[in-house]
């Protein structure tokens, strides 16, 4: 749950980019960090291992200013995609308010997308959280590869594999070219803040 400081009138929201290894989670944040650097005014923290893989996590803070008298600060995290780092993924997921699931559109990655989503569900379950009750956006990444004659999964297949039950908002994107990267971020911020507000009103 988000950290709300009524004294300081500050809300801290945690959004995690989840998905299989090499799917483009870090590239999403890097794009935002580079493209909107002058507006974000914060540094992205990233720890990489050999071969440019995320070792621990990436972290990008984003201050979106005051809304309704509350200063809203968003913290974006990515998780390492490789299976051996599941303990880190669990740790990063703790207290998550919203999730972007970055799925890889390449045909060869179909099974990995499914397994990564299952892994997300399992990890959330260990915190007694239900994925269907958490703000979620699917990003079907690497769509630009179609222009390079690379076999991609049809949108319908990806929807059927990943989003049939959850029925969450989804976007086709290319993190490397920036297509729909900002839109994905806008979408997840918007639905996460909306959901938080609703939860607070219910209490």
């Amino acid at each position: 749950m988000a950290l709300i400081n009524p004294k300081k009138k500050e809300v801290q929201v945690k959004i995690v980019y989840y998905g299989p290894g090499r799917g483009g989670k870090t590239t999403n944040l890097e794009y935002i960090n580079q493209k909107f650097k002058s507006r974000i005014k914060a540094e992205m923290v990233t720890v990489k291992t050999y071969g440019d893989r995320t070792l621990f996590f990436d972290f990008l803070p984003l201050d979106i200013g005051s809304i309704n008298g509350y200063d809203i600060k968003i913290q974006f995290y990515t998780v390492p995609g490789q299976v051996k780092y599941n303990a880190t993924r669990k740790l990063v997921l703790r207290g998550v308010d919203g999730i972007v699931f970055v799925a890889d559109s390449m045909g060869l990655r179909r099974e990995m997308n499914i397994r990564s989503l299952q892994n997300l569900e399992e990890n959330l379950r260990s915190f007694n959280k239900d994925l269907s009750r958490i703000p979620l956006v699917f990003q079907y990444n690497k769509r630009d590869l179609a222009a390079h004659n690379i076999a991609l999964l049809p949108l319908e297949t990806m929807q059927q594999d990943l989003n049939a039950k959850l029925n969450a908002p989804y976007l086709e994107a290319s993190a490397i070219t920036g297509d729909n990267v900002a839109l994905t971020m806008k979408k997840i911020i918007s639905i996460t803040i909306g959901s938080l507000k609703k939860k607070l009103e219910e209490k």
Binding site: K35, R39, G65, K186
Partner: peptide, 12 residues
Amino acid sequence: ALDQRLDDLFDE
């Protein structure tokens, strides 16, 4: 207000 702020922030 939120949408307006996000539009401003991510106006490419």
